[in-house]
Structures are given as structure tokens and as C-alpha cells.
Amino acid sequence: MKIEARGLEHFYGHEKVLNGVDIEILPGSFTAIIGESGSGKTTVLSILSTLLQPSLGSVRYDGKLLNELGNIDHFRQHNIGFVFQFHYLISYLTLRENIALAALDATLIDPLMGSLGIERLGKRYSDEVSGGERQRAAIARALINHPSVVFADEPTGNLDSKNALGVYELFREFSRAGTGFVVASHDKKIADYADVIIEMEDGIVKQIHK
């Protein structure tokens, strides 16, 4: 799915935090949004991922505006995956049940857990595995329905650098297989893995590296 954002402006109350942002996300690409704290990464990511309506400007998904996409739950379920800084795994469900909750096709769960290296942890609860393993389970949950694009805000914010690099590896691997990733991060190391790096500064796109 191709995502095109044009002329995004956003206000929180009277404070203008986005000041005319144009972004194009190509299908299957791994895009990193980097920049100083407060530069507007999370705001852009939220708008691109349908969670936030921009004050001004438009976002098109394969040429269609959000209000032309029909049922938003259905659109998210089939096209978009989310990974947050915190894993938000449901604590009373096992890792496998957490993934199953999202799955449209249950036969895909075990192979996916295998390719993320958590196949042996299916029966464990989130407080019985490591932080890196938790985040892998959360990534599996985001990937289970083969979304066109996965949005992640600071997905490695709670991980040590070794686990963080592991997560970037995974994103790169899956993006080669066709899933797009849009990742907002403080971490400059993500630049080594992404196809496109969008650098934000004070609510505008300062630079785009490919």
C-alpha cells in the first residue's frame, strides 16, 4: 500500500507542532522517522497510521482518503499493524493467545512465531519472558494478518541495544518479504537498517535520505 501525505499541519490546542509535512511511503519499504525530541515524529506517525486526524492536509492510502476507506476497524485489521513502545500484551493470556486474538487465520500463528524465534514460548505469559521476547510477541501480533504496513513508535525504547538491533533486523527481514514498516525512533542506529530515513525538525521534514 502506498501512503501519501500532503501539507500536514497539526495543532495541539493553540500550539502548532506540524508545519506543512509532505511524505510518501512506498509499498514494502522500511521507513525510519528520526529527529530531536519534540520534533513531531509521533504526531506524524499517528496521522499516517489513522490514529490521529491532522488539523490540515490529507493522507491517501493507495489514492483513497481515510473517509473513503469504509469501516476503519476493518481497514486496520486487514492493512495495518501496530507496535508500541510498551508491548501491551494482555497479561492473562499466553503469548500465543495474544497473537491469536488478532489472527484472522490461526494456521499462520505457529510459523510466524517460529520465524520470530519465540515458538517455544507460546504457553508462557508476558511476565514469564524477557523484554526482547515480549516485544517479539508484540511484533508477531502486528504481523499476523499480513498487513501492508506496520507502524511502530519507539519500538526499542524499552530494550537494550542488542535487543534493539534484533528488532531492526526483524523489520528489515520482513520488509524484504513485502511488509512496509514506518518506525519513529530516537535511535540513530536505525539508519543502518532502513530504506528511507525521514529527519524531522521543529514540525517540518528537514531531510530525506534514501
Binding site: 525530541s37 506517525l45 499517528s46 490521529l52 501496530f82
Partner: peptide, 11 residues
């Protein structure tokens, strides 16, 4: 509940 509430706004 808006999933937006799960996104950590840095700072």
C-alpha cells in the same frame, strides 16, 4: 478507548 492513548508521546 482510543489506541492513540497507547502511543508514547516522547517528553
Amino acid at each position: 478507548i482510543d489506541p492513540m492513548s497507547l502511543i508514547q508521546r516522547g517528553g
